[in-house]
């Protein structure tokens, strides 16, 4: 399971303030806290309030790279901002993200190929959010087809079924879980799957419980990667336990502690 830590995001007031004031220490601590908690990659998002998302992305990448060599997920809907992040990046990179729209694919797939980056593909297009499994599969198939045509390594493609909040789209969640399984049948070698976990509990009570319950169910469907809050200890313990139950990690009595030892040092 590839865990991408979600906390370096300008959506959070503390991070937005740190970006605005170019406060390196806050960003670097946030990066290291997440790595220590088990994140193998870090999401980097300037947030909606950023006055200059292009230079902010560059500053964030440079700031984080000073303290860790973990993979960076350059998170922006603007290709220009992602390009700037790529220029500054020494660490490995995940491009987060392209939609199923042709103009986005045309711009981002070659970029991912050129930089040997992973690519997150959202099952969404300019017409809006899909409402059922078939629409999700159609959009995902479009992304897979384009990547195959362009010779992009499908094993580096992470398809996101677009996770909807439980209190908004309760009827869709079973479809979303099934999409995770069915996305992987779209090609051979199969694409990988990713979710932005915290979406499921937006606006709800008991967020941590909802997050970890869905996470476990998604892992049972074959989920490969999640963008989540690694500082949520109960969530991380549920992830580790699921890895053992799915036989991805060898059981031992200290299996929770063992996970920390498996992780490479900072």
């Amino acid at each position: 399971m590839l865990i991408i830590g979600e906390l370096i995001n300008g959506m959070y007031t503390r991070i937005a303030k740190a970006i605005a004031e170019k406060d390196k220490a806050t960003i670097q601590k946030c990066a290291l806290d997440q790595v220590k908690a088990g994140a193998e990659a870090l999401d980097v998002n300037c947030g909606p309030a950023s006055a200059d998302p292009i230079s902010d992305m560059r500053w964030l990448v440079e700031t984080i790279q000073e303290v860790t060599d973990k993979e960076l997920s350059l998170d922006s809907s603007r290709p220009q901002s992602i390009k700037e992040g790529l220029k500054a990046a020494r660490n490995k990179v995940i491009i987060n993200s392209t939609t199923a729209d042709l103009e986005k694919l045309k711009e981002l797939v070659p970029l991912a190929k050129k930089h040997n980056a992973k690519l997150i593909g959202l099952a969404i297009n300019s017409k809006g959010i899909p409402h059922n499994k078939d629409q999700r599969l159609e959009l995902a198939a479009g992304i897979v087809t384009y990547c195959v045509e362009q010779g992009f390594n499908i094993e580096g493609l992470y398809l996101d079924p677009i996770l909807m909040p439980l209190n908004v789209a309760q009827t869709q969640l079973k479809d979303i879980l099934e999409s995770i399984h069915e996305f992987k049948l779209l090609s051979q070698p199969h694409p990988k799957t990713v979710i932005g976990l915290s979406n499921i509990s937006q606006g709800a009570k008991s967020r941590s419980l909802i997050n970890r319950s869905f996470m476990v169910m998604a892992m049972a469907e074959g989920l490969d990667c999640a963008i989540l809050n690694p500082l949520d200890k109960k969530l991380m313990n549920a992830v580790i336990t699921s890895e053992v139950i799915l036989n991805n990690k060898i059981y031992c009595d200290s299996f929770l502690e063992a996970y920390g030892k498996i992780q490479s040092p900072l």
């Binding site: 060898i250 031992c252 200290s254 030892k261």
Partner: peptide, 8 residues
């Protein structure tokens, strides 16, 4: 399982 546990 014991091999892993013992190493830890």
């Amino acid at each position: 399982n014991i091999a892993k546990q013992l190493n830890i």
